[in-house]
Simulated assay, not measured.
Amino acid sequence: MRLTGKTAIITGGASGFGAGIVRKFTAEGAKVMIADIDPFGARDLADQMGDHAIACEVDVSDEASVASMARAALDTWGHVDVLVNNAGVTHLPTPLEDVSEADFDRVVAVNMKSVYLTARALVPHMKDNKSGCILNIASTAGISPRPRLSWYNASKGWMITASKAMAVELAADGVRVNALCPVAGETPLLKSFMGEDTPEMRAKFLATIPIGRFSTPQDMGNAACYLCSDEASMITGTALEVDGGRCI
């Protein structure tokens, strides 16, 4: 019960890595807001978590929507201890010069602007409390980029740098900021990363991961739980690779 008494907002929490983090956090005693653009998926998962979770529809690229999410959490709990910026998108594997402007703008808005918007909405509250933890879900793509995912890679590199910059600035206010860098996992984005989900493509992808398997939602939940718990009170500004050795 490492998160007993803590409250957490998890964006993109209805599926994939986000759902794994939701399940782990509730199992460890946290009260969780499952914030997702898919209201039905968020409500379904919240119902499974019982009294430990609430659902909130949010577009993390929209300032008014993010502000409404933050208000709902504060109105419900009175305080927010943990923010997990998990919501993310990618463009399909494409030569960098052929990615459409609309796809580029969507990657920037969801993967990058969202971190800015959630910070505007919740950092003042954490500063006032002299306590808080922000966890940004980055990617090994931000450390060791793959070809044909250039603008997605860049957005995750940005997130790693943003996490470190936020950590340095907010440390004196008692707020810790870290990032997690998973390798691709069994999530709705896997097919988008690979271009096509075939046994051949999976084998090719897995050949780059020394441990020989994809990241799982459980892997991410376990790592996130540690970094957001008091056990990690001396850890800020790190980008933890949860990648089975992919970045070695």
Rank of each mutant, 00 (worst) to 15 (best):
R43I: 08
M33R: 05
L180A: 07
A73V: 04
D36M: 12
D59S: 15
K191W: 12
T118S: 09
A167I: 07
S139M: 10
A171C: 06
A109L: 07
S233Q: 04
M166K: 12
H52E: 10
A179Y: 09
T90R: 05
A14V: 15
A167W: 12
V115Y: 04
D128C: 07
S114Q: 12
P199I: 00
T198Q: 05
G20K: 14
R23H: 09
L189I: 10
T140I: 15
A223M: 00
L92G: 03
I37Q: 14
E200Y: 05
F214R: 01
C228L: 04
M1F: 02
K191L: 14
M49T: 11
S163Y: 02
G245N: 12
G237Y: 11
P95K: 05
M194D: 06
M220H: 09
Q48Y: 07
P217M: 11
F214I: 01
L206Q: 09
V107G: 00
V99M: 06
A67Q: 13
P210C: 06
A203D: 09
L149W: 09
I137H: 13
V107C: 12
Y226S: 02
D128T: 10
E57M: 08
K156I: 14
V84A: 08
P95H: 12
W158K: 07
A73R: 03
A167K: 13
N178H: 09
E169P: 11
A223T: 01
V110N: 02
I21H: 13
D59K: 10
D103H: 05
R106Q: 10
D98I: 03
R202V: 11
V82H: 02
R213A: 08
L83P: 00
S150A: 12
C181P: 01
E57I: 00
A53H: 10
M194I: 15
A53Y: 08
I209F: 03
T118E: 09
